[in-house]
Design a protein around this nucleic acid. Structure first.
Length: 254
DNA sequence: CTTCTCACA
DNA sequence: TGTGAGCA
């Protein structure tokens, strides 16, 4: 029995694909100890160490081409730098996953709330002060479309993973996101008349706003400030074709 | 079983 | 940066 091993034995030993080993060879980072008369690649102990080394650097997300350079010319200080920059990458990846996890937990929690407490009725809520980042302003007669979303895209990421706030004031609507810091746009704390509802088509929204005005007349409420419409687009994944909205308006206290 | 090449994500 | 198919 030969003391050297074949490519498939090496692949099993190191838990990588045969393909990948040949790919590393093509990229010049791992050569067989020798090639047998039948053209089979044969590997010994030094190649096993070399492969471990390459795989370790790959785990740090270092491109194979760069591994070639590093093996030939890197100083220990270069390797320290490599590890440090991988550490930074990994930390930002952890951040990304933490945010994703929080998003999933929040979505499950809020969906659970809406299950437990079905919508369709008016309800009073006491809401704390909220600060908004303004995004797009548009008129009631020229509703939002894909084009002006794109034109105003700015630096926004994951557009529909947070609550979109539409502030209805006079003849125009301002699209906002809730901000974490103090901003110039502020929704005052106080008692709000609220209702959650599902929207299938655009007109449903205007109908809900009209209904709210009727309720105001009937009950003689004083509305303060703008009418707020909150779109929970990420919750709509649970109801295939509808969007979940909540309408809010601050009411004066007699 | 291995080799190589090609197309594909 | 690999994977899978097909071939010899």
């Amino acid at each position: 029995m030969n003391e050297y091993i074949t490519i498939s034995e090496l692949s099993k030993l190191m838990s990588v694909s045969v393909h990948q080993i040949r790919y590393f060879e093509e990229m010049g980072v791992l050569y067989p100890a020798y090639t047998d008369t039948n053209q089979y690649r044969m590997y010994g102990i030094p190649e096993i160490y070399q492969l471990s080394h390459v795989l370790l650097l790959r785990k740090l997300n270092i491109p194979v081409g760069q591994i070639k350079e590093s093996v030939m010319s890197y100083s220990t200080e270069d390797y320290r730098g490599l590890l440090k920059s991988s550490l930074i990458d990994i930390e930002s990846e952890i951040d990304r996953l933490i945010h994703l996890k929080q998003f999933i937990q929040r979505t499950l929690f809020e969906h659970n709330e809406t299950q437990h407490d079905p919508f369709g009725d008016y309800e009073f809520k006491y809401l704390n002060t909220r600060f908004m980042n303004q995004w797009i302003k548009f008129g009631l007669e020229e509703p939002i479309n894909a084009r002006n979303l794109y034109d105003n895209r700015g630096h926004l990421t994951n557009l529909f993973e947070s609550d979109l706030h539409y502030l209805y004031r006079e003849e125009n609507v301002t699209l906002c996101f809730e901000a974490n810091e103090l901003t110039s746009v502020c929704l005052e704390e106080g008692k709000y008349l609220t209702k959650r509802f599902l929207v299938t088509e655009e007109d449903d929204i205007l109908r809900e706003i009209d209904k709210l005005r009727e309720v105001q007349k009937e009950c003689q409420y004083t509305f303060i400030g703008e009418t707020i419409l909150i779109e929970r687009s990420y919750l709509s994944m649970f109801s295939n074709h509808d969007l979940l909205y909540e309408i809010q308006v601050k009411v004066g206290v007699e």
